[in-house]
Design a binder for these strands. Sequence first.
RNA 1: GACCCCAUCGUCUAGAGGCCUAGGACUCCGGCUUUUCAAGCCGGUAACACGGGUUCGAUUCCCGUUGGGGUCACCA
Length: 473
Amino acid sequence: MTVITRFAPSPTGFLHLGGARTALFNWLYVRHHGGRFLLRIEDTDRARSTKEAIAAILDGLAWLGLDHDGEVAYQSAHAVRHAEVAQRLLAQGMAYHCFCTPEELAEMREKAKAEGRPVRYDGRWRDRDPAEAPPGVPPVVRFKAPREGETVIRDLVQGEVRTANDQLDDMVLLRADDTPTYMLSAVVDDHDMGITHVIRGDDHLTNAFRQTQLFKALGWKIPEFAHIGLIHGPDGAKLSKRHGALGVEAYREMGFLPEAMCNYLLRLGWSHGDDEIISTEQAIAWFDLDAIGRAAPRFDLVKLTSLNGHYLRAADAPRLVDLIAPRLVPVLGREPAGPERERLAQAMGSLKERAKTLVELADNAAFYVRNRPIPLSEAAAAVVDKEARARLARLRPRLAEAGDWTEAALEEAVRGFAEADGLKLGQVAQPLRAALTGATISPGIFEVMRILGRDEVLGRLDDIRQPAKRQPA
RNA sequence: GACCCCAUCGUCUAGAGGCCUAGGACUCCGGCUUUUCAAGCCGGUAACACGGGUUCGAUUCCCGUUGGGGUCACCA
């Protein structure tokens, strides 16, 4: 049997973390077993669905590298088919017209609540003659759900879960305006698309019971279900706006790499022994549903950040230069060009060890391409006091005359100077660092000098002699 | 409230009756290295929610309690 899964987001917002993880699991399951991963936009609520949301979801998936097979399906395009299925159920006596008004329903709910009874539709039109229908009330079509017995689903993650049928009321299939509801659309589309495995958030677990009943009534094969725990915030409650729940594009903006995001999301609720760093290839080879934990995991930005640091260090220089180039526009006024990019590429090796996000990386790299005179941080300004400036002034000719502009030669020159002056290396290196990078923290100073080049180094040393002309950082 | 689900360090988790003196990762704290900061390496703090069973033996199985979560729309 070919495995066919789907990711079926409703386009009412960005691709949030939970959705991204659901998509990832669906994608991995298919890539592992061989099969098709379909994408279906559940836009049956046309009032809340937007083009922007669809674009954001598509962008998010593309960024994460979760490519789907075939064309994107839009659920709204199948509305006629869905309605036909409802009519068929109606004709077979497995569904019925309900003439309750919204007000009547609200009243029913309130009364049940007040009496401490479960809030459900009481089935008052289930066996009533449509001839008794009140005038002017357009009916909805409700599913005639079984009232006895129980519905059991064998969930691939949650195990066997059962619910008494009297806990489930008669759901609406077709609204008063004849449009299909989610419950109907999802079942019909899953059947029509040949979905074999429904992997989705745990919040759909109760829907699985109703959908199972519908599948049965229609005489269709029921797909396998796998309900994965929802991602929770630090306080244990479902990730929501109040936790600052963000779309994946926000994490991209914060400087996270897609591979770090995928690795993090994969390890959130799923594990393979003690493995932490897992490549996409390994993930495909190892992934399976039975290793998914049943409990809801909490989102931990610190761990994501740490993982991102790892992938940043593993990334190659040209790619990182490409990624930070747009982030350098604020300091350069434009994206870095040829020679600047070359300089950045050379510096990337040691720069990436000092950053956990692309934001940090760009910040730390900026001094390499800044125009002179470079601004000094407060701490750096404090380092280059009068004495330190005098020291640098004495060092300058030595550098100007240095034979080779290699790290070894530069180190020898600076160390020799420090020794001759009876100084510790740090007493020379820190002022030098401040003058050349504008900060008290940077990669090794000799590497910085080498990459900056003799002219730039001497120029920046000259700049430091006229502190009055500088702008504060 | 009803129904359903869940429960190992702060967090993500390993563990599928004796391999557990409960392992790994992140965080945190030390140390090494050192021109700063990282990275790296070494070391440390930190958990089986509670109560009953079952068993020669429970983190692992069963029941209950507690705690947490999810769902109860003409939304998806």
